[in-house]
Nucleic acid binder design. Structure first.
Length: 439
RNA sequence: GACCCGUUCGUCUAUCGGUUAGGACUCCAGAUUUUCAUUCUGGCAAGAAGGGUUCAACUCCCUUACGGGUCGCCA
């Protein structure tokens, strides 16, 4: 029976979930799902001094938001639990005894060090290929501490033990772990275990090429919802950093990514984070949402600005769906549709004034629109043409002043849509308002 | 410093010895649109450098340069 693929994401709760970690989690998740395997979440909380509850929660929140569910881990449990390393000391003690029995550890200033075999160690990385580190050079590879003087175990040891105990088949992690892998291989060998396959994925860098750390702009996954991103867009963008579908398509849902993902298609060179493209990907995802889904996604942003979405919010949101890149842009885009007090774009108003006959245009529009029978986008637009005829100008010249009167903006949804959403009374009122202002 | 990994338009990338080196983001121009956005068309823009190997190299090898990573009783 072929081994079932089992991958894991093993973050330490010492800071907010950042995009690098999120992408690692994504690749692990995709690989497991792609192969019908299992994805495990393990919290590596062995550094008591640096762990925080907020960070732990940020991991769960981030994973949930991204849509990366785990088959085993905190909350859901599983046969290899507990999934917090802080609760697995008995397991580590047992494995440590194996090392003692095999005479592979020795005490040093109260701590226990693992004795490396002094030989070249070769790994066969699924992304980086064959890499050999020569452990005969002791200066470069000093024996490592596996058990601290306070009795606790260090990362290298618990990480390896848990990967063994949890029967992890594929370790997918950041390239910053590449040089750790021979250490882990030696430990596994000493423990008589079977090593998982390794895949080290390139790191994500800042736009300037420096290492992206947790405090850098755009690094915290938790910031993305606040900035108006939808999760599938961030997932999509992250997948494109270091992985390529090898086609010219770029916009993918999580399901589509699962279909196409493969470790063979992962790059070896680090990628810089481009916020502009990330926003574009977000826009593409917004464009592909149904009107209902878009309205549901936009609603909290509107409410956050103390705007009442109102009874026809689906239609209101749909009017601006293709005009925004980020959901945070929605409130200002729809404000004039929800409230009668809306800001006036002075530059647009100046442009109307420069046209000269603004008041006359408003008057003609008011008169024509007041006479419309059934109020629809078509009938209202027809009335605009009538007004233009009455004034002896082209309909096109009526549009801009009308738009400014109704929305206070130079751009926005189709005029027919605006007129329909506002209704006759409010439309006429706003036209009259601007007429007076221009007189 | 030592040891690893990497290097194609500004950025993300395709190319797995023979291509006018393709696509995307950004930017510019045009079309569509009353406007903005969307969409479409076009444009600017790349193989770090030097040596090999080969009929032929972005692609394979070496050197250098540059970038990143790792060298903890952090993970």
């Amino acid at each position: 029976m072929a081994d079932i693929v089992r991958t894991r994401f093993a973050p330490s709760p010492t800071g907010y979930l950042h995009v690098g970690g999120a992408r690692t989690a994504l690749f692990c998740w995709l690989y497991a799902r792609k192969h019908g395997g299992q994805f495990i979440l393990r919290i590596e909380d062995t550094d008591e001094a640096r762990n925080t509850e907020a960070a732990r929660q940020a991991i769960f929140d981030g994973m949930n938001w991204l849509g990366l569910d785990w088959d085993e881990g905190p909350d859901v449990g599983g046969p290899c639990g507990p999934y917090y390393q802080s609760q697995r000391n008995a397991v580590y003690d047992r494995y440590f005894e194996k090392l003692v029995a095999a005479d592979r550890v020795y005490e040093s200033e109260g701590a226990w060090r693992f004795r490396f075999e002094r030989k070249p160690v070769t790994m066969h990385d699924l992304v980086c290929g064959e890499v050999t580190i020569d452990y005969r050079d002791e200066s470069n590879t000093p024996d490592m501490v596996v058990k601290r003087s306070d009795g606790s175990y260090v990362f290298h040891f618990v990480n390896v033990v848990d990967d063994l105990e949890m029967r992890i088949t594929h370790v997918i992690r950041g390239e910053d772990h590449l040089m750790n892998t021979p250490k882990h291989l030696q430990l596994i060998e000493a423990l008589g275990g079977v090593a998982p396959a390794y895949a080290h994925i390139p790191l994500i860098q800042n736009p300037n090429g420096s290492k992206m750390s947790k405090r850098d702009q755009g690094a915290a996954v938790g910031d993305y919802p606040r900035q108006g991103f939808v999760a599938p867009a961030l997932v999509n963008f992250l997948a494109l950093l270091g992985w390529s579908p090898k086609t010219e398509e770029e916009i993918f849902s999580l399901d589509e990514l699962t279909q196409r993902f493969s470790l063979e298609a992962v790059n070896r060179s680090p990628a810089r984070f481009d916020a502009e493209k990330c926003a574009w990907v977000n826009q593409q995802h917004l464009l592909r949402m149904s009107a209902e889904d878009f309205a549901a996604a936009a609603r909290p942003y509107v409410e956050k600005e103390s705007l009442d979405p109102g009874p026809q919010f689906v239609a209101v949101a749909a009017a601006v769906q293709e005009k925004v890149r980020l959901l945070t842009e929605v409130p200002e885009a729809v404000r004039f549709l929800l409230e009668d007090a809306f800001p006036m774009d002075e530059a647009a108003l100046e442009k109307v004034k420069a046209g000269g006959n603004g008041a006359a245009v408003m008057g003609a529009l008011h008169e024509a629109l007041a006479q419309v029978g059934e109020w629809t986008a078509e009938s209202a637009k027809a009335a605009i043409a009538t007004a233009a005829g009455a004034l002896g100008v082209k309909a096109g010249q009526m549009m801009f002043p009308l738009r400014v009167s109704l929305s206070g903006k130079a751009g926005g949804p189709d005029l027919g849509v605006i007129l329909t959403l506002l209704g006759r009374d409010r439309s006429l009122q706003r036209i009259e308002q601007l007429r007076q202002r221009l007189s």
